[in-house]
């Protein structure tokens, strides 16, 4: 088949050309390497920041306190009602006894006081711990729950939660923007470097045109060459992300600033995905760079 014959020749020529123009190839490869390292680090950082936000959001619990005189029957009904609400993910019941025991366990003073209480004296309230599916709608859900009869109070850290969400959303958007901007800059940089290297082969391209090569046939070896350059250029960034992140993770034992809330993403399989992403970006950018660069010389 003609198309396979051509493809075989293109791959062979691309290989040859990487080595024949080695110093120029090296320039492109170094450019890809350096920019990809920056991109890879920013991807790691962004994904981790997103992860902090996610962990935090998952951790938010709403506490629904019931009036003291609520009967067991009513409680059952309320629990059913809660479980069937749209935004409610899980409902956990804590009787006032549970709360008492829990609190008593935290300090000696509290325990000595609470031991005095019997069932009727216990001023604490039965309550539900609720996790929501969509943290953005937590306020609406809280309002809705508030309307249920026998619900005394709903507490979810109103105000602070909203602020945290806004802050994290802003961070998420900004970091995403930074990554996209970096990738765009990378593409530009690489396109320009490859343009320089292809400039020296202008003659070769014009001869190909003269002897009747179609534009597609001319572009192909350059695009394949760009792919090689992308692969070669992403080796070091991949090693750095993989081993670098592993070392980073182990050094901090998974938690940044030793805070349980700022949890790093587990390296496996996370780093493999990132490595793959870096490779794919390298290949695409290399191919795109060559394509754009060679296109310029196809007009003669």
């Amino acid at each position: 088949m003609k198309i396979f014959r051509m493809l075989g020749r293109n791959i062979r020529d691309a290989f040859k050309s990487v080595f024949r123009n080695f110093s120029l190839s090296l320039a492109s490869i170094s450019c890809i390497t350096i920019t990809l390292i920056i991109v890879a680090i920013s991807i790691l950082a962004t994904l981790n920041v997103n992860n902090f936000a996610k962990v935090m959001k998952e951790d938010v619990t709403m506490v629904v306190f019931l009036n003291t005189e609520t009967t067991a029957e009513e409680e059952e009904q309320i629990e059913f009602q809660l479980k069937n609400m749209d935004n409610v993910e899980s409902v956990e019941f804590r009787s006032k006894e549970d709360v008492k025991n829990e609190m008593a366990g935290t300090s000696e003073t509290l325990r000595s006081i609470m031991e005095e209480w019997d069932e009727a004296d216990n001023p604490l309230k039965d309550n539900y711990l609720i996790k929501v599916t969509d943290i953005e709608k937590i306020k609406d859900t809280a309002n809705e729950i508030q309307k249920i009869e026998q619900v005394d109070a709903v507490n979810y850290g109103e105000g602070m939660i909203e602020q945290l969400i806004t802050a994290y959303d802003a961070v998420q958007k900004v970091s995403l923007l930074v990554v996209i901007a970096l990738i765009v800059v990378t593409i530009f940089l690489i396109i320009n470097t490859i343009k320089l290297t292809i400039f020296s082969r202008k003659r070769e391209i014009s001869i190909m045109r003269l002897v009747g090569a179609s534009n597609f046939t001319i572009k192909n070896p350059f695009v394949i060459e760009g792919m090689f350059l992308g692969i070669l250029g992403s080796i070091i960034p991949i090693l750095i992300t993989t081993y670098g992140y592993l070392a980073f993770y182990n050094h901090f034992q998974g938690y940044l600033f030793s805070s349980p809330l700022i949890k790093l993403i587990k390296p496996e399989p996370f780093i493999y995905y990132v490595a793959l992403l870096v490779l794919v970006i390298g290949i695409i950018v290399g191919m795109l760079g060559s394509y754009r660069a060679v296109k310029k010389y196809l007009k003669v």
Binding site: K2, R5, M6, R9, R20, R203, E204, S206, I207, M208, L210, V211, G212, A213, T217, I218
Partner: peptide
């Protein structure tokens, strides 16, 4: 002349057929 300086005489001539996908 417009020859490819890094290719041999044979390669320079064969090049014209290679780029149009002729059989080996």
């Amino acid at each position: 002349y417009r020859l490819l300086p890094k290719s041999t005489v044979y390669e320079n001539v064969a090049f014209a057929l290679e780029v149009i996908g002729a059989k080996s």
